[in-house]
């Protein structure tokens, strides 16, 4: 028996990967069924769903961007203090002393902008493909909430570098909130932890950006994907045959 084979047949290997690795359809089904990650997928998918014109992969790209942002964001958290003026100095440290610091920061900022665009495009695709129609009404609502959360996530992150750009962008934004009758000022106060954009606001935005909003997004994304499967997988373009596609 050759070494690789004996390895694969070993008890240790089998305790981790229960099926073999040979490219049989059984093993392929098992790969999906046995895997936690791949469990989101069915064992088989419709060939037409894989076509780019069905989805333009926009939902997938949104999720990938979110994953990239989570990874780089976690690394950035190692170098960041949400305090004044340390927050700004940390940006300088990233640029000048942290290995690949600037690359890391870029790889957080550009995907963040991209995610806003991609999520919006994803929403447009779903709309034009009529994929919000029954039974997917609620998933559409979740999607709208996810879009809003994405905007909020980007907006809260915008303040963290604590430079002029960040400060005034957030000041302008929160001043818009103030215009809301009755509820505006209290909401703004709650958001900023005070009446001005200061260290309290920085801390709140930091916690929102790094903990609360990502958790909310993760939960809703899970729900979103779960509903996609429960509602019959990817919805196709609505125009073909003028009807909903469905498995039921």
């Amino acid at each position: 028996m050759k070494l690789p084979e004996s390895l694969i047949e070993s008890r240790v290997w089998r305790s981790i990967v229960r099926h073999g690795i040979r490219a049989t359809n059984r093993n392929r089904v098992m790969a999906v069924m046995e895997s936690l990650v791949l469990h989101l997928h069915p064992a088989r998918v419709r060939r037409r769903s894989l076509e780019a014109s069905r989805t333009y992969f926009l939902g997938a790209i949104s999720l990938i961007l979110f994953a990239i942002l989570t990874a780089t964001g976690l690394l950035l958290m190692l170098y960041y203090h949400p305090s004044v003026p340390q927050a700004y100095d940390d940006m300088k440290e990233l640029q000048f002393t942290v290995s690949n610091g600037m690359f890391l920061r870029n790889l957080h900022r550009w995907p963040a902008h991209a995610m806003v665009i991609v999520v919006f495009l994803h929403m447009l695709r779903v709309f034009y493909h009529r994929a919000y129609r029954p039974p997917r009404e609620f998933n559409w609502v979740i999607g709208v909430v996810l879009l809003l959360l994405t905007l909020l996530l980007s907006y809260t992150g915008y303040l963290l570098p604590w430079d002029q750009l960040a400060f005034w962008a957030v000041s302008v934004g929160t001043n818009m909130v103030k215009a809301m009758p009755l509820l505006g000022p209290p909401i703004r106060f709650l958001l900023l932890g005070g009446n001005v954009v200061g260290e309290n606001a920085l801390l709140r935005f930091y916690v929102l950006h790094c903990v609360m909003l990502p958790l909310a997004i993760m939960f809703l994304v899970a729900l979103h994907l779960w509903r996609v499967r429960k509602d019959g997988g990817l919805a196709g373009a609505g125009r073909t045959g003028r009807s909903e596609r469905g498995e039921a």
């Binding site: 100095d89 300088k92 440290e93 000048f96 002393t97 430079d163 002029q164």
Partner: peptide
Amino acid sequence: GQGRATTVAEAHGRVRD
């Protein structure tokens, strides 16, 4: 100038921001 910087242009502060 910019003390934290480690590149010539940035350290000498001859940058826009």
